[in-house]
């Protein structure tokens, strides 16, 4: 018996044979490497994140712990991925649990927030990329709790989407976040906070 795979592939081959396509040159003359200064990238990413309704905190490396504590001020119990730099939490007065794979999603639903690092950020679109590294954690961790505080290094902020995509390891689970979840499904009125975290706060470290 012919299987569906061979049938579909056979049809596709016949379809192309019936009207052979011309070979295609892909023009890659769009902007791919933009060397924007630190200040330009910082201004741009802060502007975009603010426009999306995310909280933005700027700090120098030595101010990380106090800034993180401020960003987490309304959370009592948070969860962090196993590889997170714990010194960031030195000033946080609430309780901190480290995600072990055993943390059930219901337990995640009980905590007030999550603190993570990030992989790369695109300034032009205000997009933070998470790649599930040990300082960012598995995907459920940054999805279920209602508050996500995310630390971004200015050195990992790139100008455009092509530069950001080039930094990614494709086979890791990747989540791109541009502001808190939102819907415009009812009369096009924007409502923030549907299923993802309703509050997103980004701590941008301007040096390291």
């Amino acid at each position: 018996m012919v299987n569906a795979r061979d049938v579909v592939l056979g049809r596709v081959r016949e379809a192309l044979a019936a009207a052979p396509p011309r070979p295609v040159e892909i023009p890659r003359d769009y902007r791919r490497e933009r060397g924007l200064s630190d200040q330009r990238r910082l201004d741009m990413v802060v502007d975009r994140l603010t426009e999306y309704g995310a909280g933005v905190y700027r700090c120098r490396a030595e101010e990380t712990a106090t800034t993180v504590a401020a960003a987490l001020s309304d959370a009592r119990r948070i969860v962090v991925p196993p590889g997170l730099d714990r010194s960031w939490l030195a000033e946080f007065s609430g309780s901190v649990e480290v995600d072990s794979g055993e943390f059930s999603v219901r337990a995640l639903d009980e905590v007030d927030g999550v603190l993570t690092s990030s992989a790369v950020t695109c300034a032009e679109t205000g997009t933070v990329f998470l790649d599930a590294s040990s300082d960012q954690g598995r995907r459920a961790l940054t999805l279920v709790p209602d508050l996500h505080v995310c630390v971004v290094e200015l050195s990992s902020v790139v100008a455009g989407i092509p530069e950001a995509v080039a930094e990614l390891e494709p086979t890791r689970p990747i989540t791109m976040i541009s502001g808190p979840s939102a819907t415009s499904d009812i009369e096009l009125d924007r409502v923030e906070g549907v299923h993802g975290p309703r509050t997103l706060r980004v701590v941008v470290r301007v040096d390291r």
Binding site: E124, I161, P170, P173, S178, S181
Partner: peptide, 29 residues
Amino acid sequence: FLQLLPRSSTGERMNPYTSMWTGVTAGDG
């Protein structure tokens, strides 16, 4: 496409969430 789609679709610089996955990842998803 991550530049073309959100701007053409919802008229945003970027949509709030985009997910990418490859097969299965142990301990995640």
